[in-house]
Design a protein around this nucleic acid. Structure first.
Lengths: 224, 224, 224, 224
DNA sequence: AATGAATGAGTGTTCATTCAT
DNA sequence: GATGAATGAACACTCATTCAT
């Protein structure tokens, strides 16, 4: 279930040169490892399987990563660096109503994270932080804090412009983002088993409903 | 970190009779196993550690559960049976405004699940369904479906009584419940590492804010 | 080539009880490990082979020794403690000519060390000190220093009593002991391959000749 | 720790021509391999390290030696051919007292073997013969037998000339040579770890004392 | 019932060897 | 010739499971 084919040459394609392979390897291995760590968990994933999915032999994994644990950390680091500061740019230059901005940010995030392989990183974090506690600091600094700051800034903008009523912005930020994260977790757990689930079938519909609900919940009561 | 003491006798307590201990064994083992499966994951948990935490020797675990996998299933079954049909009673006999009913159900759930050891079950499910896919059917039937039905019924009650505007009730149910589940997940992952997190410090405040936001979001727009 | 049978029960013998086995295990494993480490070297010895020679399975080795390296250290520690202070007693209470005392000590040492499995320890030390340098301090303190002191005291006794001419006693001590150590090394290297070697056939003869030569070498020149 | 520089060019030295380097390769590899085999043992030495010490890449080793085992044999063969028949020339043309001849041979040997990298070969032999038993025959024929013959001839010369009393010449030869060999072994084992050892500090003094002791031991008792 | 010694299949990691460049 | 990426067999070590006590 990798989102990009990472296995060795398909028939018909020219065999990539040794040098080109070497440059592509780490990425291929990280993709394979993300897939498997997310699917099975760190402990239940065999290095042999990571290697096989990347189309190489077991020893090759150790040419690029000194241990299974370092591979895990590299997977997380690599996929987090994709995530951070994704939204900051959008927010800075947007000019219209905050409701539209929030919808834009949510949809962009869903396209770039939720629908890609990277969505698995959240399950991986939740699964493995307790076993590798230094991941916690890493994740808090790289994702949670910038992410919270971004959303709080968004909400503050709405309040400042008289669009939103005041609430506890940190709590509200979590009410906004948590269902989106659950969507990612769901996709890589129950959603991967029983396809017969409404939410798995139409995540965009769910997101639209969720954002509407939240925006309505934040709307300023009519003076009366 | 078990919420109930599961280890052997503390000095000062009266030694429980041998019979008491024997009858309590399976429960103690299930508690110990839940703790460890949640903390470390199934694959990274050693039977030895489960036994040690329950205050027995390794062999004893096998007197009660035929294999590690069956122990996992028993843990899940046992903790799910606590969960299911918890709220049905409350709903049936409640008479006031749906907003109050929802607050009551949410707070009751948080007390009985979120604040207890049982809150870990959601992390366990998310972590392990893909490795033990028959858990999926089990969980869907025992938790997801009754849970969704309960919340949808709640929301429908609000709509029927003219308290809530109409929305996609399944999506809205998920918007309502997902942040509560994330609270449980958080508590057993990041929240267990860096205590310096707003959300971890005041979950009840977060729940109150979340429910308010949702109820406001569901409120019927003023005619006019 | 173990000097005592260490493998599991011979047919006809009563099966030793589980408890008795547990007490005997470490010794059996140390004997097996000494044999193999001496024969093949540390790196080339497989834990599987140690286990097989001791008549147990691989996992059992790890019940008693936490790693291969600790097993090595235990082997050395165990075999050195046999060695230290072996001669001190003899020397203290001897009364006759120093020449006789030296012959007695040499023969006793040969019987108790040279002819037993423990003779392999010297090869093991020489082979492995550079890879495990903290063995060096250990060996220097436990064997070299007490050993040198013993022999120097012996020689000094001879000089004091006018039996030996004065020489550099440390150098002479080494001239005395080194050929005995070479005999041990030889036995576990070349001597184990080509049996057709004079020295391997008659070590006691060699020792007698060597001691005679040394004693004659130490004898006081006739006043002339 | 090689006694001759075997690594690639030092800054300031003229860069050897490519041809020079190529012709020197096998010698450089043999030197590097001897160092490492002696230091760590055959099994614990990595081809990668041999290559690195010789300043080439791993693949290059296989251009010159078909396998690690053949490299070992080449190292031994090469260092033995240095050793054999070193002394025969000296003995043939010497004319004075046998005592002087023995001192000359011993000192020459120590200069040419004991003080050079080649002294490690004895440790290597003792360490590895049991794993590669055909080395035994090789070593016996090339070193032990010629060496013994040489020393026995020396001793016989002394007896024939009335300088030495008769003894078992084979045993005496071993008494003479074993301490010298132990000096080599010591240098590459304990001596390489704890420098604070009398013997390691003044090997020539030890040799002088040892030969004196032996010669005195062999001296003809005064008639009387 | 309870124990914990023993097992051996399974997995992370290493490293001699190969071979395309 | 020289390189170093890739391989995969081999080995240290772990741990679920069994069973004699």
């Amino acid at each position: 279930m990798p989102s990009q084919p990472t296995t060795s040459t398909l028939p018909g394609e020219p065999e990539p040169s040794r040098r080109r392979r070497k440059e592509a390897r780490p990425q291929e291995l990280l993709d394979a490892a993300l897939d498997l760590f997310v699917e099975k968990g760190f402990a239940a994933t065999k290095i042999d399987d990571v290697a096989a999915r990347a189309g190489v032999s077991k020893g090759t994994v150790y040419l690029y990563f000194p241990s299974k644990e370092e591979l895990l950390k590299a997977v997380i680091r690599h996929n987090l660096s994709l995530t951070i500061a994704q939204g900051d740019g959008i927010v800075a230059q947007f000019d219209g109503p905050t409701a539209d901005l929030i919808r834009l940010v949510a949809n962009t995030w869903w396209e770039r994270v939720g629908e890609t392989q990277a969505s698995g990183i959240f399950k991986l974090i939740i699964t493995e932080v307790r076993n590798f506690p230094d991941l916690a600091r890493f994740y808090a600094e790289e994702v949670i804090e910038p992410g919270e700051r971004l959303i709080v800034r968004l909400l503050q903008r709405g309040v400042d412009r008289g669009e939103f009523r005041p609430t506890n912005l940190y709590d509200t930020a979590h009410s906004l983002i948590f269902p989106m994260l659950m969507l990612c977790l769901h996709k890589h757990s129950i959603g991967a088993c029983s396809a017969a689930e409404a939410i798995a079938k139409n995540p965009s519909g769910f997101i639209a409903n969720h954002i509407d609900l939240m925006l309505h919940g934040l709307s300023v009561p009519r003076a009366g």
